[in-house]
Each structure stands twice: as C-alpha cells, then as structure tokens.
Amino acid sequence: MDPTRPPTEQEKFGRHRPLTDRDAHEINRVEELSYDLKVREVMAANVITASPDMPMSGVLELLRTNRISGAPVVDGETLVGIISLEDIVRALQKNELSEPVHKYMSTQLVTAHCTDSVVESIKTFTEKGLGRLPVVDEDNKLKGIITKGDITRGILLAVQHDYKEEEVRRYRVSHLFEDIISDRTTLVLRYNIKAGDFTHGGNASSHIKRALLRLGADQKLARRCGIAAYEAEMNLIIHTSKGGILKLEVEPHKITLSTTDDGPGIANIEQVLQPGYSTATDKVREMGFGAGMGLVNIQKCVDKMELDSAPGKGTKLVMRIIVPPETLNSQKG
C-alpha cells in the first residue's frame, strides 16, 4: 500500500461493515461475472516478447524501455518460456549478459487459456502467488498476458455496464409520470389469478414489487405493497371459485391495490377480519396457508383497506397506500 495515500474505507474498517442486501447482490454479480468473463476478453493482447536466442543484455534493454519486469519468450508464435528481471540479475552476477535468453529463462510455465473463465486465473494467482500469466491457445501459441489488474478492470467495466442498463431502465420508467402529461396519470397493471393455482402463487406480487422498484419506490414501500399484494393474491387462489383479478394502480402520490372476484363471497365480514379466523381446508393448511392472518397482515401494510362482499356475488378488496413525498419521485430517477 502506498503510504502517502489515505486508506480506503475497506482498508480502514476491514470487513466489519454489515453487509446489506444490495452489497450481497453485487458480490454475487461480481462472482457471476468472474465465471462469465473469459480470459481473452480482459487480457492485454499486444504483448512485448523476447526470443530464445536474443542475448540477456537485449532483454534488459527491452524491459527497461518498456518499463516492465518480465516478458514471455516465444519461438515463432509458440510460448517456450518466461524471462524476468530476476533472471537478468542472475546473469549479471555471473557476468553473462551476452548469453542467450534460453539459458536463463524459466520453462516451468504456468499459463492461462484464452477460453478459460477469469475465475480460473484468479485461482492460479492466489494459489501460485504469481502476478501475471501468459495466455495461450490450444496450440500453446501466445495470445496475450493477463494480470490481476486486467481482471479487476474487466469486472468493473462489466459491472458498470450492468448498472447503466438498470439505471437507464429505471430512469425511463420513473419519468413516466413527468413525460406523459395529463390531469391525472395512472399506471394500471392487471394480473389474472386462477383459483387453486398454487404453482404460480406469489408470481404476480413479485412482479408488482419489481415494477414498483423500477418506478423508483424505495425498498420499504415496495416491500409493504409486495406483502399486501401477496396476501391478496393468495386469497384469490385459496378462496375463490373461479379466481379473480389483482390490480395495481400507481399514481405519483398514491398506490392502489385491489382484487375482484365473483364468488363465493363472504357472509360475515367482521369475522374474517378477526386474527386467526380461517375457512381454509386442511389440505391448504398443511401447506402453511390458512393462518387467518392474511387480511390482518394487509391492514398492517397499507394505509386504508376496504372489504366489500356479498355471498353468492363476490368480493372486492381495495388497499390504498399513500406514497410519502420523495419516495416515488421521478426527479430522483
């Protein structure tokens, strides 16, 4: 570490800073990238090389003028060795700078393959304590050279690219309310929920949560809406005869979630609002539903809940969430 440089946050606090969800996501992405990125995508392709027959003094000149500490040795295009400053020092000690490179070069080569994932090179760097690896193709022809710095740069570029894509997407969506001018703009998302479709249970609400995040909602708001939507979605799956519709309406200052179905309807509304009251069948209870807490949870998550139902007709559940100023704000993008 350069002593004149102030320490980074990471160096100062080590890894004690608690990991947030976002960090975890980003770490996973970096890890994913180290598998996705190939050595040839991040390596330096224009390599300064030495030939086996050139004198050691020539290598010294080569390293000095290019300000590098070592170079791969190639015969034609084939990698045959690697020569470094240390080898030159050894030659100097014996006063043999006029001897050819092949006498001093190291031939026990650790290489990277150009089609390898960069994670392979990371492993090699760690295991062998090396700083750079010559990159070869299947015929052992030199294609480039890779350093830890190349890998870091490659991953950073890829992450930045990802980040920009999501930012652009978010930016476009969150400007919806600014760019489209009307007296009252509402974005409506409708999901058809099938009765008894436990296989897709929760899909609509997870789409709703993601849509709100894209619209610029913060994690907390997206989570509240997601939980309310989930409970309402599961109610349609568990309790209706023919399913129903889950609807999300987003306005700049208000979010409305609602479900409508055409039966069987609720006889006693006060009763269904009691915590723990449930009409779920044993089969559904075995799956962990029917705790009688669904509507109670919804009430906790939303600002206003209205339940309207009549037996034989159907049920309409409306949930309203007031968006605090600045939370779903297009200016913040």
């Binding site: 969800d21 436990f198 296989t199 249970g201 929760g202 899909n203 609400s205 997870s206 949560k209 989570r223 997601g226 939980i227 989930y230 599961m234 799956m287 962990g288 539903f289």
Partner: peptide
C-alpha cells in the same frame, strides 16, 4: 427455519429477501 418444503415458500422467501 421451516418444515414447509413446497413451491410457495419460494415466493415468500423472495418477497422478504
């Protein structure tokens, strides 16, 4: 920690991160 192992636990786990 749960002994539920059916498909719907995924939606719950994912919603709650």
């Amino acid at each position: 920690v749960t002994l539920q192992a059916h498909l719907n636990i995924v939606a719950v786990a994912s919603m709650l991160d």
